[in-house]
Write a protein that binds this DNA or RNA. Sequence first.
DNA 1: GTGAAAGCGCTAACAG
DNA 2: CTGTTAGCGCTTTCAC
Lengths: 342, 342
Amino acid sequence: MSTLSEVARRAGVTSATVSNVLRNRGRVGEQTRQRVLEAVEALNYRPHLAARALAEGRAPTIALMVSSIANPFYPEFALAVERAARTSGHFVIICNTNEDPQAGRAYLEQIAGTLSEGVLVMNANLDFDDLHKTQARGAPVVLCMWERPDDPPGLPCVAVDFRRAGRLAAEHLIELGHTRIGAIVGSKPSGIHASRYEGFVDAMREAGLKIPAKSVRHAPDTIEGGYTAARNLLEHDAQMTAIFATNDLPALGTIHAAADLGRDVPHDLSVIGITDIQLAQQSRPPLTTVAVPTVEAAELAVSLLRELIERPSRAAQQKAQRMCVTSPPQLIVRGSTHTRSL
Amino acid sequence: MSTLSEVARRAGVTSATVSNVLRNRGRVGEQTRQRVLEAVEALNYRPHLAARALAEGRAPTIALMVSSIANPFYPEFALAVERAARTSGHFVIICNTNEDPQAGRAYLEQIAGTLSEGVLVMNANLDFDDLHKTQARGAPVVLCMWERPDDPPGLPCVAVDFRRAGRLAAEHLIELGHTRIGAIVGSKPSGIHASRYEGFVDAMREAGLKIPAKSVRHAPDTIEGGYTAARNLLEHDAQMTAIFATNDLPALGTIHAAADLGRDVPHDLSVIGITDIQLAQQSRPPLTTVAVPTVEAAELAVSLLRELIERPSRAAQQKAQRMCVTSPPQLIVRGSTHTRSL
DNA sequence: GTGAAAGCGCTAACAG
DNA sequence: CTGTTAGCGCTTTCAC
């Protein structure tokens, strides 16, 4: 690893000059520029990013806090984040909190503001106090998937109208003539699944449909969780003709459960999810779902973060209020829903 | 963000002392230690990792090069890498090369040795020259899933006996009485899928079974790729009773294709894959597959990397030869394979 | 145009 | 035990 001053020596100039040609700052004579470039080439010089970070007082990385990268939804988001981050010259450090606020805090305290200049939070189950603290220490924080455009979290965020997503899903089922509709709701009582369910409830109410307690189940946000909940639902109410899940994974599990119960999807049972993960296209039948603008959310989150990093002064005042809203979720009709036929 | 010297001033000592108490180096009086700790607390001080990295001449991060984190297999691996890395105090920077050697090179040149002190390579389609260069510049490199324990790549690596995996899969099918077996091989002609296919060929040959060209297809490493290839296979040879895929995703696609062709898996058609990704348990029927020790590979890779980082001198000599082999792949029989019944 | 010099925040000898 | 002194590799005024 050669250094700036080695390059400088070889080019017969000083390191300041080398720095200047490398960053196109200041005026440098064409001749010296050439010599410097040659020296850089000859020595195979590459700037030391940590040193640069220290000198500039900023870091070339951002942290992405996520509960577990192994959950099928996050990788798609992480990929989009990484792409967006690259365009602003940032690398992304992946921080799996494993849903543990302790782990999250450890990450935040160590890297925020020292190794990474900002943090993106994606359903990582973090303590809001911790988030505020890291913000106070100078590292901007943005929440990547806030579920309520109408209820700001007091932290910069990009919001997705999940309530609307829930409503769209329910409306689709209702339009198809379904009246006995079951719901599988992500296990965490509050948070992102609550608003989806609220949207569902809104639509049901408007259509004059009841939601008996028996037709709602809470389940872990996995295929298996959905499977179990769906079996349960179907065994308690044989008349049910449609199931709404607050997420794609449980919806996929529902399709499996139906198959095991000898019920054909979509003819005997319609199933709908929310998100539109890649797998949704690849199930049998392909899953009807309400697509959430993942890539857009990632891009907005990165650009908001960048803005907060670059205009800390102006941003300081707006921080609490700063909220970007993505374009609305959209219904994607595929093969798992059908006109009620019973 | 308060600094070491601010803490020092407040505690009435010098920054060296603060550094000492924080890292438990050197002897420090109990009284001063207390005062320092109080000051740290009062100022909410956190060490600046970039500064520390510069001073120590090493970085607290490693880079994980991967073709695309959105591919369902990598996240599981990435999670294991991150966990292992944390135990050695490293953060992991995720580098999506998108299969593009150019992109890979850009990453390597920028971060290797400056922002991250080592790099893990996971099927990222990188140029070996580039890897050798980054190694030469002082950043250890380890390949995470080398497919041939018997043929070292000239770079440190952890090897998984994929040939054996292919053999195990084939043997399972053969034992079940299948003789007309189709094969779906990952698209890249050389590399990781080749050895899996070789293992398959070995077993077939030993069993005295032929592999007509018609019963082999190359396909992208996706569900859809497998779907198309399987349809193709099945339409050309209605007698085929089993299909071996070099990876789980195409195997899953094969199950779908069979369903669309009205063939029951496993009674009309047995399907087997390799890897054992999470999805394999969750398909209908659950996929029989040969499990590859992902987590073990991740842990070995990280510890090998750490060793290379820490003993550069000794390691230098061994670098080219350094190879860890994981425990062997194992057959996991689930629902997609069955005794031949035609 | 180019160089000299200070400093980013921390660590690591070495003195005292 | 604690302080002094040098850097780590780079950026950035500010002189010349």
